[in-house]
């Protein structure tokens, strides 16, 4: 069932960091060890699902069969400024952020990190609040 070749249940700290990089999450060395152990335990628990015969079973999500969609109309929202004020760094009508990592930096610094190239082509600066 698995598309990868690691022995089942073994999740190394490197593997934990690779996954953490996918969601832009810093993980310390001790944390990575702990998380690796946790993964082994929980993946071992998930393995029970392989006992089931799920041939032909359709995926399920709860709720009404169809979701009622709103009219696609602009709705002015007066608290826009309040939302901007809650940003850690605001500049006029923008959220202020530092420059972005470029492709080559991303590759160099995050060796083995997935999702490289993200944003590399964008100029540094602010992103719009809209």
């Amino acid at each position: 069932m698995h598309g990868r070749s690691e022995p089942e249940g073994i999740v190394s700290p490197e593997e934990v960091r690779r996954i953490a990089a996918l969601i832009q999450l810093e993980v310390g060395d001790d944390e990575a060890e702990d998380l690796g152990r946790h993964f082994q335990k929980i993946l071992g628990y998930f393995a029970r699902l392989r006992e089931m015969d799920l041939e032909g079973v359709e995926p399920f999500t709860p709720g009404e069969p169809s979701i009622a969609l709103r009219e696609d109309v602009e709705t002015p929202w007066e608290e826009r400024g309040e939302v901007l004020d809650r940003a850690p760094f605001r500049e006029g009508d923008f959220f202020r952020v530092p420059r972005m990592e470029r492709d080559e930096e991303s590759r160099r610094e995050g060796e083995g990190r997935a999702g490289s190239g993200e944003g590399g082509h964008l100029p540094p600066g602010s992103c719009s609040a809209d």
Binding site: H2, R4, L49, M52, V57, F60
Partner: peptide
């Protein structure tokens, strides 16, 4: 952190069918 990493893992390439898609079917069974 444990949960969002677990969630990312089960959705990541190569594992999606074994975990996420399977669990969606178990949900139907329930």
């Amino acid at each position: 952190k444990r949960r969002i990493l677990t969630g990312t893992y089960v959705l990541s390439s190569g594992y999606y069918d074994a975990y996420y898609a399977t669990a969606q079917k178990v949900r139907r069974r329930v």
